[in-house]
Design a binder for these strands. Structure first.
Lengths: 192, 192
DNA sequence: AGACGCTTGTGAAAAGCTTCACAAGAAAGT
DNA sequence: ACTTTCTTGTGAAGCTTTTCACAAGCGTCT
């Protein structure tokens, strides 16, 4: 399981230290990293700088991803304001919404565009990812339209399981499901 | 892998049908469910009503979870407005924030309380879960204070890995990490 | 140079998870 | 009652992931 390493004081870091931060084991860290080539130094550990560079490449962070945000409601605005969105290599190239009252509204330097333009925006702006911050009822349709227009991945905040071709990765973020996972763990913990 | 079943037309449902919805296999569904006792009927499938009841119990949804929302910023407000929050058994019993300008503001029928009251609110209102919608820099401290005051689980929206005792489950929701997972998958897909 | 303390990379073993396959049970039709 | 049609529950087989264990490499100290 890959875990992200934040900048650390030392110049090198051992699998042991990484494991503690990442809530996993040293062997696990070594095995994970070894899949991408062996760039650790025996007796020393991994160079923090090199590790950062490698991870950036492994995770595909050596490029800027062009993202379109669909849905300018509360979740949409929370995401848009997210501090290190841009810093981490994600460029929100457009915001669309289906509510006529919202269209034309300015968010920073972006103007909210009508939902009908989704396909053309994806193509013109070469967007690779879409973030679905729309109601559950609209999610499937928006997902299909996005994929047909050439999007490569979807981050889905709508509380439904969307169906897309197998080669399009979808990450789901669902508040209620996360809470259910918690309540499940707490409930199980009582009688293990 | 447990998947949630939404209300369906029929009175019974087969593992096959569940599998299609849940993006898994029939054998998988049967094995999962069999861990919690065998309540399917051979030749018929599972009674939808019984399945719902069982899942409610398995997931700990047969009780109402008392939740305190820490952080009344954009993410906090997006969560607070989340439609089926209450319906699904989560009762937001308090909202706290450290910004003096926000304290006293009304959100629905809740009044935003000062962050100093966190511990007393947890105890008085018997909160079991906290949602951390605070900046990364504040997350660890709030988590520790919450756990010390008796919270049993944490939903963490701050982009840091928080450290708490092993018996306290933490679910992390981190926009950037989800996006990184997507970019990783897309990048890998090119050269598998 | 040699000994020592660390730490990686990686086979091999262990554990966990998924799929297969099929006996056994339940309804419905004959 | 018997046959047919479904579908569960579960051992066994197959596959994946995690952990163990240790040779080999690197730096330091004497």
């Amino acid at each position: 399981m890959l875990e992200l390493i934040q900048g650390d004081g030392g110049v090198t870091v051992s699998s042991e230290q990484l494991a503690r931060r990442g809530h996993t084991t040293a062997a696990q860290v070594r095995k994970d990293l070894s899949h991408f080539g062996s760039f650790g130094k025996r007796g020393l550990g991994y160079s923090v700088d090199e590790l950062k560079d490698r991870l950036r490449i492994i995770l595909g962070l050596d490029r800027v991803w062009r993202v379109i945000l669909v849905g300018a409601g509360r979740i949409g605005s929370a995401l848009f304001e997210y501090p290190d969105f841009k810093k981490r290599g994600y460029d929100c190239v457009a915001v669309v919404d289906s509510d006529p009252a919202k269209i034309g509204e300015k968010w920073g330097e972006r103007v909210i565009r009508p939902a009908e333009e989704l396909e053309s925006l994806i193509k013109e702006l070469h967007a690779t990812l879409v973030i679905l911050a729309v109601p559950a009822s609209a999610a499937q349709l928006v997902a299909e339209r996005s994929v047909n227009a050439g999007v490569r991945g979807i981050l889905n905040f709508a509380p439904v399981q969307i169906q897309v071709p197998e080669d399009i990765p979808v990450e789901n973020v669902n508040l209620v499901m996360e809470l259910e996972a918690l309540s499940f763990q707490i409930t199980r913990a009582v009688t293990p």
